[in-house]
């Protein structure tokens, strides 16, 4: 099993979610995260004072898949996300074990 983690912009997120849904992936864990803005960030002005903000809001998607499905899912995410904007990060981590809290199933059965 693999843990696929993708960080996409909020505008790409809906398309990625929809695409994954079409391919039958429903179990996503979503986190709001920030990424360093590589273009240098932008200023905000409050009460005549300038503040610099170079962290941009992103959406982090975590999902677990079988070794067999993983390349396809990575392909779907990169394809959909890069259609909207420049592809953000995606990385894959091996998962040692998996258990479902609700049913007690183990391994790929718990997916």
């Amino acid at each position: 099993m693999k843990l696929i983690t993708a960080v996409v912009t909020p505008s790409e997120f809906d398309a990625v979610k929809k695409a994954l849904n079409i391919f039958g992936v429903t179990g996503l864990t979503i986190t709001e995260v920030f990424q360093r803005d590589l273009t240098g960030g932008r200023n905000q002005i409050y009460r005549g004072q300038r503040f610099h903000a170079d962290l941009l809001p992103h959406v982090r998607i975590d999902l677990i898949a079988t070794d067999h499905d993983t390349p396809d899912l990575v392909h779907i995410i990169t394809k959909v996300a890069s259609m909207r904007a420049r592809p953000e990060n995606i990385w894959i981590t091996p998962v040692e074990a998996l258990a479902s809290v609700r049913t007690g199933e183990r391994g790929t059965d718990a997916l």
């Binding site: 200023n43 002005i45 409050y46 009460r47 005549g48 300038r50």
Partner: peptide, 10 residues
């Protein structure tokens, strides 16, 4: 003003 932008708090 700074950056010549209108601001709400202004």
């Amino acid at each position: 003003g700074i950056d010549h932008k209108p601001t709400f708090l202004g």
